[in-house]
Nucleic acid binder design. Structure first.
Lengths: 141, 141
DNA sequence: GTCCCTGCAAATCCTTTGCACTCCT
DNA sequence: AGGAGTGCAAAGGATTTGCAGGGAC
């Protein structure tokens, strides 16, 4: 088992992530941290974000559109993803505290957590559905 | 709006996906289809899998470990992912038919579906947790 | 004939990794 | 001193895309 050693960069990444309610990508975090530590590298950001996830201090959100997002908000909440513009929004309600227990009953392994993603069209996109529902190619996630 | 035109490849990809209960990656599908159409290209497989998803005839599963998976089983069921070995298993129970409605109440957009991922350690991995819970580097997903 | 679809290869995007060096402890 | 963490750059993996030719309608 490895021993964790303090690093300013990790501390900064952690507090950056905890301080925002949007769902930043690794690159978003990188751009922010760079204001304080201009020499930090994207690799370091990835390494530390992954570490935070492994330590259970953050969640990684992968919902199928664009790069992964990170979320330090560990209170029960779920996410809504717009199929068209890719926007990610919190859904504050529904603390399904017994969901893991229910799932456990039909599962061989030991469940410790779950993630729920809701998909649809956000208000802005609902009136103008794209062909096939394809996402735009620009980075407007 | 584009008009769809028939193609043998798309038909084969679709029936391949509908015929299997595992959760194949694009490459898995590619390797299978190649037995029937040795000249098919991976790009075509990706194009058609994405098309099937856009048409609502398949789901793309992105849960944060390894490449995306595809699933043509649209009946209500959720997935369990082993944090250590990356195995993906169906959880047959829990048809939360009212979940979208509940979520709709705290959401601006128009929800049309949801995906639930349960995480934990599968039976085989449960007895030997990895350091930090890191996944193995080999492709054993 | 027109336009969609394909195969191929190159390009792109995201993420991880090797290495030499630095910073904690 | 020892070893974990960093910056940099290169590598890696997954997915998309441009283009010329082939197939559906």
């Amino acid at each position: 088992m490895k021993t964790l050693k303090y690093s300013r960069q990790r501390e900064s990444i952690k507090s950056c992530l905890m301080g925002r309610r949007d769902h930043p990508t690794a690159d978003d975090v990188y751009l922010t941290i760079r204001q304080e530590y201009p020499n930090i590298s994207l690799g370091t950001v990835y390494r530390n974000l992954n570490l935070l996830v492994e330590l259970g201090e953050a969640q990684k959100l992968s919902f199928g559109y664009g790069p992964d997002r990170f979320d330090a908000d560990l209170t029960p909440h779920y996410h809504f993803i717009c199929r068209q513009c890719g926007r990610v929004a919190d859904l504050p309600l529904m603390p399904f505290s017994d969901l893991d227990c229910k799932a456990q009953q039909c599962c061989d392994g030991a469940i410790d957590s779950h993630l729920i993603y809701f998909y649809g069209l956000c208000k802005a996109c609902g009136s103008s559905p794209a062909e096939y529902g394809r996402l735009p190619k620009d980075g407007s996630l």
